[in-house]
Design a protein around this nucleic acid. Structure first.
Lengths: 148, 148
DNA sequence: TTCTAATTAAGAACTATTATTATTTAGGGG
DNA sequence: CCCCTAAATAATAATAGTTCTTAATTAGAA
């Protein structure tokens, strides 16, 4: 999985360093988005000398190359995952999960409206926050006292 | 204009301070979004002792109260304007202008899809970056050498 | 194997924002 | 009108997340 990606890096003239291998391995082994710090923590298990700057530098590079995608909600740190095509998220404020949705607002009639403005689109962000089904259930059945 | 808003503050138990008056005056006199620092700079002309912390504190409070709206693209600082209803923007990377668009992706069929997930929406963000008509024109007719 | 540009680790610096604290003030009650 | 007190302020320290700097290391081409 990350073997193909590391080859893409090489194909674009970047070196195959152990740090980059580990970064991709950690991301591809996770079932959810990870922050830069989380990536660092996981790499440190096997490679204690890893530096945060290296991770940030490479994450940025890989986002640029569309090998990694970045989810930034401006609350805590940005979170990253292996790029798996363009998509948007429903982000749960309870458990933090980012559910992919298979639809993009830049298709359909919003696109037309933007074109009517004569605007040339470069990029866009669409993220929805709220509560997933599971966290809504838990809130209902939660017998703990509120934390005041 | 800002007189009505300052009354809304008072109605909710907040004091009518000269700092708040100036903040609202500066925002309502601007024809575009302003960053906190820009607001401070403009207030300093008449009230040199103004503190950034005061501006941030009050901007947050007013955003909460839906008297001011915040646009945060996570490149530079967040930008603020007097609240004029819910809307989204086309943000020009050339001149920085934020064009309002009269449409929201949370209406229509995207809403249905989100409901199908059983997700309870709390908030959402939709911003489009690119180049406005004017900046596209200028790029075409620009005879300056590229800045290398 | 050698060479060199790319990459790294370490930590300083930076930016935008929030927290702290001592001082000041708005505005209600007497 | 003056006093009182909670609210608000100025000044500045602190914070979080990320980027920059620099000297040392390394991947991989020749």
């Amino acid at each position: 999985m990350c073997l193909e990606i590391i080859e893409k890096l090489a194909a674009r003239g970047l070196k195959k360093t152990p740090q980059r291998r580990m970064l991709l391995k950690v991301l591809s082994q996770s079932d959810r988005h990870l922050s830069a710090e989380e990536v660092v923590a996981r790499i440190k298990v096997q490679q204690p000398g890893i530096s945060v700057a290296t991770i940030y530098r490479n994450l940025n590079k890989m986002v640029e190359m569309e090998l990694v995608s970045k989810l930034d909600l401006h609350d805590g740190p940005a979170r990253y995952e292996i790029y798996k095509g363009h998509h948007h998220h429903l982000v749960c404020l309870g458990c933090g999960v980012a559910l992919k949705i298979g639809i993009c607002p830049l298709q359909g009639h919003i696109k037309k409206i933007i074109e009517e403005y004569g605007f040339r689109v470069n990029d866009h962000h669409f993220e929805v926050t709220g509560h997933c089904q599971k966290c809504q259930q838990e809130a209902k059945t939660d017998t703990r006292l509120p934390a005041i």
